Amino acid sequence: MNKGLKKAMGFVAFSAIFALSFVLLSPEEAAAAWKKSGITPQGDLKNSKIYTDLKNIVYFVTGIGGFWVILCLLFAGMKLSAAQGGNPQARTQGFIGILMAGLGIFIIVKATTIAGWFAGFGS
């Protein structure tokens, strides 16, 4: 057997045993096992700061997506302006690039709305 495959099989077996132990153990035994391993669950999502972190990640991804859309618009605009000499294929590529950049803006805005909807579960 391949060494990488053996390592992967070992990890899968360990993960399955770990997951199965939580199914077989009662919640009190599982909590005791977590505490014994040094993991202390908060039990309160409002005080865990996870929503603040997720909000920052959404803002970061939205910002990067915004810069990417601006770059796509610039590239498509250059392609369209270069096609004024009568190249219909480059002209079509420019229009499609602008359309796809607009679609990208729409997806970014809707993804932010969906992420805000999910974040509303914790409040």
Rank of each mutant, 00 (worst) to 15 (best):
N2I: 13
G4W: 05
L5R: 09
L5P: 07
K7C: 02
A8D: 12
F14C: 05
F14K: 11
F14S: 12
S15L: 12
A19M: 13
L20R: 03
L20C: 05
S21H: 07
S21C: 12
L25A: 11
L25E: 04
S26Q: 08
P27Y: 02
P27D: 07
E28D: 09
A30N: 00
A31K: 07
A31G: 03
A32F: 04
A33S: 09
W34N: 09
K36L: 10
G38T: 03
D44Q: 03
D44F: 02
N47E: 09
N47A: 12
K49P: 04
I50F: 10
Y51W: 09
K55T: 15
I57R: 08
V58W: 06
Y59Q: 15
F60A: 14
F60V: 15
V61C: 08
T62E: 13
T62D: 15
T62Q: 14
G63I: 01
G63W: 06
G63L: 04
W68L: 12
I70L: 15
L74G: 14
G77T: 06
L80G: 04
Q84D: 07
Q84F: 01
G85P: 07
P88E: 01
P88H: 00
P88Q: 00
Q89M: 09
Q89K: 09
T92F: 12
A101L: 02
A101P: 00
G102H: 07
G102S: 10
V109S: 02
A111T: 15
A111S: 14
A115V: 00
W117P: 00
F118G: 05
F118L: 13
A119L: 14
G120N: 04
G120P: 05
F121S: 08
F121M: 13
S123L: 07
S123D: 11
